[in-house]
Nucleic acid binder design. Structure first.
Lengths: 153, 153
DNA sequence: TATTGTTATACTCTATAACTATA
DNA sequence: TATAGTTATAGAGTATAACAATA
């Protein structure tokens, strides 16, 4: 290995990334980006960004969920959620309704179109999940998810 | 479950994220963000962003590596690498030197200070790696990394 | 003609401060 | 006094197009 004071020149044949590859964070990020790339394309068919699908899906399974609860669940900051909700509402997929007894809060609900879209998107996502992780066996996929959840739960 | 045409109001006690949690991409992203948060703090001690550490570390282990090779290895776009390299060069950590026989390319090298900083940062990172994944056994960590690499390799 | 590095720039994502109305 | 939702805005990260020098 040469220092800067030793002005020789080297040619790197294949790049060595051994150290970075010993890090869970590095590998998790690389894997996430790899999968997200595939998901982004396929969600575009439904005209949904990934975060929009997450929101749609969360509301589908939690009718009446508040913005604050969505923010906590998806790790989104409140100001950044507003436009997402507004956009889905304008598309007629989602509605805001006053919370039953907390005058500050709004409950989120899907319209029938929203529910229909979510069901279609869920099917796409489930199929895609298998494809995007086709290098894993079913058992490996299960193990991987369990270990990842141990980290962030 | 209520539709938008059925204007009732619901209260969500605990948010159900079961569907999203069946997805490798969702879990990988959540885990990556969780770890990156810890790493960002600890790298700040060395005044390094995570991507800057990745660059420093890659050059440390691959003296003479070209910008293009770095871009391919770290999945960075060329225009976005330029400022990173320039910044580390201004800090006296890294130097650009002409490629031995390709007049277009520049080889990247670390100065002695750059090497020293990388060694200190590697120690921090290695210690941090254990801490950030303390919920995993050594065997689980090894399995997790192997499975993640199967996805993006 | 294709590639490396670069510049300029646009777009998206994320983060912060401050406001309102309600609790 | 604190919280939910909102607005405006700033900052970071990521992307595309075009150029000069070299292959």
């Amino acid at each position: 290995m040469h220092s800067a004071k030793d002005p020789s020149t080297d040619i790197v044949d294949t790049v060595n990334t051994d150290f970075l590859r010993t890090l869970v964070g590095y590998n998790a990020r690389r894997a996430a980006l790899s999968i997200i790339e595939v998901f982004t394309e396929c969600m575009a068919v439904h005209q949904l960004k990934i975060v929009e699908f997450s929101l749609l899906n969360l509301v589908a399974h939690n009718p009446g969920v508040t913005s604050r609860q969505v923010c906590n669940s998806l790790n989104i900051l409140a100001p950044n959620l507003v436009n997402l909700v507004t956009l889905l509402e304008k598309r007629g997929l989602l509605v805001r309704r006053p919370h039953p007894f907390d005058g500050r809060a709004m409950g989120l609900y899907l319209s029938e179109e929203g529910q229909a879209l979510n069901e279609r998107a869920e099917q796409t996502v489930s199929a895609l999940e298998i494809e995007a992780t086709s290098s894993l066996t079913a058992a490996e996929r299960k193990t991987l998810i369990r270990l990842l959840q141990k980290i962030y739960d």
